[in-house]
């Protein structure tokens, strides 16, 4: 029996070896596991290919091919602007997930969140991420502004980009504030009540602004729909436009500001 077993095992090994060779020799395998295979013609590190990485990618093309050496110093920017943008993307992704399970009416909103947290896979986790990332984004945009100011990066030729940036800070606050109401719990309702009461003190058109924002004289289901639309569609739309101008101006004004 032992004699029989050995050749059988060997045959199996040979077959396995053949199969491995076939698989690894196949075009599919080598195109997946070839180093640098995500680039059609492979990737080897050369100045030319380093440029192509940027030039041939619609996403990386936000960047120039080369930047000033000091601009890549993490200690200069602390990545705050880039992280604000990244948090915006993270919030968009998690926000889209939340939209699948949420109806902006006073009768359903709170129940939907409750259901999302208890009955939807990863629902609680994604809602948590959306909430914490939102607070983090307010913080990072604020810190980014402080960083830019202390580096004097708002000085010519970047004056107008500073103005755009302050706008973006306000839009970030508005995005966060409009999202605050959506869970329709006690926290949301009364935080927004306090917040919108403050708005009513604006001179001349304060009451009108408040009326338009609330969709009535008091917070209600109309407010919820209004703030939901502002939160998921209108403000992100405006923010994306302002971000596009912001990033474009960074490049047009000669990259980030120079060393001090």
């Amino acid at each position: 029996m032992a004699d029989d077993k050995k050749p059988a095992g060997q045959a199996l090994q040979e077959q396995l070896g053949q199969l491995t060779e076939q698989v690894q020799g196949s075009q599919a395998w080598s195109s997946i596991f070839r180093p640098g295979s995500i680039f059609r013609k492979g990737y080897n590190d050369s100045p030319r290919n380093r440029s192509y990485v940027i030039m041939n990618s619609v996403l990386y093309h936000l960047h120039p091919v080369k930047v000033k050496r000091h601009a890549v110093k993490v200690s200069y920017t602390l990545c705050l602007g880039g992280l604000s943008f990244f948090l915006f993307i993270l919030l968009t992704v998690t926000g889209i997930f939340l939209m699948f399970f949420y109806r902006p009416t006073a009768a359903q909103a709170w129940d939907d969140i409750q259901t999302l947290q208890t009955a939807v896979g990863f629902g609680l986790l994604v809602r948590n991420m959306h909430r914490w990332a939102a607070h983090l984004m307010v913080l990072s945009v604020f810190l980014h502004m402080a960083r830019v100011f202390y580096h004097g990066a708002y000085k010519p030729p970047r004056e107008f980009n500073w103005v755009i940036g302050v706008m973006l800070l306000q839009f970030t606050l508005l995005l966060s504030f409009t999202g605050y109401l959506l869970p329709w719990d006690q926290l949301a309702l009364w935080a927004v009540t306090v917040g919108t009461n403050m708005m009513g003190f604006t001179p001349v058109f304060g009451e009108q602004v408040r009326f338009v924002l609330l969709g009535g004289v008091e917070i209600g289901t109309d407010t919820l729909l209004r703030w939901y639309t502002l939160h998921v569609l209108m403000l992100p739309f405006v923010v994306v436009i302002f971000m596009a101008i912001h990033f474009w101006r960074v490049r047009k004004d000669g990259g980030i500001s120079g060393p001090l």
């Binding site: 380093r50 990485v53 990386y60 960047h63 091919v65 080369k66 930047v67 000033k68 050496r69 890549v72």
Partner: peptide, 15 residues
């Protein structure tokens, strides 16, 4: 000047 890839993209990715 330095190339954005890998010097800047790597830092951004890690951040």
């Amino acid at each position: 000047k330095v190339h954005v890839w890998p010097h800047l993209l790597l830092a951004e990715f890690l951040a």
